[in-house]
Design a binder for these strands. Structure first.
Lengths: 254, 254
DNA sequence: CGTTGAATTGAACGTCGTCAACCTCCGTGG
DNA sequence: CCACGGAGGTTGACGACGTTCAATTCAACG
């Protein structure tokens, strides 16, 4: 019940930071920032399971790229209600919300022993060009702008998921999205570990945790997935994508 | 009240677009982009009620600032389901979603005879500095980045509204937000015209239109607001903000 | 083992969506 | 002037979906 509030209290950051040598980084092929000529400005940070990368209110000190492990970000509103706003896999960015106000507006914590690289904003504004995955070159700032544009588009899609979909479809979409991103991060597309708790999933999808639990059972009974605690296997990706079921809640499109 | 507010001057403009002289613009004090040294690159566009500023798939040709009137933006997903993603008042930006892919991903249409100024992206990247409202000066690109950062933060807040709030609170928050922005655009904070249909509101808040209609009635019965068709008066701002009611749905925070 | 937190399962309630009828406003044309 | 029609909005009845409350199971750890 009060776990949301308790989470924020527990944050003591033992800062393990060190300059990151992008050139030598094992994750280079995965990292969207590794192409930058000024990669050496990046700062690597190791975060233990449950510990925070930063908390809401912290002074903005850069954009982050997840390097290894798993992160979740969440915000807490005026009434103390928590909202998980996203999960971050290796190769994905977070922290863009802090740019405008100069302070992060959400909390980000590791769901595993993880590491992330902090990219100071100056890295984008000073560095003239960035090497793209496809080999092309573009101004570094443009990379940042595009990155944010993508985030906006993604968030908008979340409106659909939260607002217009049944609980079941929300979970299906979530698993499908996760599968996609797991694959992008180099894991198996069909068999991976859910690093977050049911509670986190439920909160993220704006459902009761009981509902999530029941849906997992339901999907398993239909041989669409197989779950054992946090180990997940996707058995029928097609069914998962279609959100197959009797009721596909058809709301008035307006 | 059949409004005297109906003083819409219909502008019969031959050209839909024309170069905008920011210096001479009457809305200059309101416009967040007016300070730019390269303001003359902006292109003004007049859009009739119900007509589109752009549609999904259009090639990205810049960020827009609403100048007068009222806009709504919406997306249509793979299944053809529509989702209203936002409303835009004078002085507000839209179109940021198109930057990354090079194409707009949503549709934007005028809910009144309206005008907006298109700001080509080069305006931000080439112009070295922007004059801020407070008189300070900063690189133009940074303005754009901050703008997008703000949008992200705002969208995140929408998660709360859609996911964690009861229908009633959603509507209250919506009206409160609208009131705030109306005031920012120079209108009355407590008495203004809802330019959008009930259907649009419902869609935006992910509710059935009947629910919205019922809630308007309910809020009126409690003397929190007074509605006559699309004319709205806010009678009790405090109650509106608190979302006062018997049930304030207390979901598990997780 | 006992304890603790996470997950599952069951049962009952309530919000809100669905269906449907009706109303109001407004423009059109006889 | 009134009949007509259609779009937008209101209101009522009903029940599905998902939340809430509560009891139980399960795994992990000291």
């Amino acid at each position: 019940m009060n776990s949301a509030v308790r989470n924020i209290v527990v944050l003591n950051q033992n800062r393990q930071e060190r300059a990151s040598a992008c050139q030598a980084c094992a994750k280079k092929p995965l990292c969207p920032a590794a192409g930058s000529e000024s990669g050496s400005q990046a700062v690597q940070k190791i975060v233990q399971n449950g510990k925070a990368v930063y908390v809401a209110g912290n002074k903005f000190d850069g954009i982050y790229v997840a390097r290894s492990g798993f992160f979740k970000s969440y915000a807490i509103d005026a009434d103390g209600v928590m909202q998980v706003t996203g999960f971050h896999l290796p190769g994905e960015f977070f922290g863009m919300d802090g740019i405008e106000s100069g302070r992060y507006s959400d909390h980000v914590e590791a769901l595993d022993t993880s590491s992330a690289c902090r990219l100071p904003l100056e890295l984008f504004s000073s560095a003239p060009r960035t090497l793209q995955a496809d080999g092309s070159v573009e101004p570094a700032v443009l990379s940042l702008v595009k990155l944010m544009s993508r985030t906006i588009t993604r968030d908008r899609n979340m409106f659909f998921t939260l607002g217009k979909m049944s609980a079941r479809r929300r979970l299906c979409v979530f698993l499908q999205d996760l599968s996609e991103r797991m694959a992008q991060s180099g894991y198996s597309r069909t068999e991976f570990k859910l690093c977050m708790s049911r509670t986190d999933i439920a909160n993220y999808l704006c459902l009761a945790l009981e509902t999530v639990s029941r849906l997992f059972g339901q999907l398993q009974a239909e041989n669409i997935i197989a779950v054992d605690r946090r180990e997940l296997k996707i058995l029928d990706m097609t069914a998962l994508m279609q959100g197959d079921e009797v009721h596909t809640r058809t709301r008035k499109a307006g």
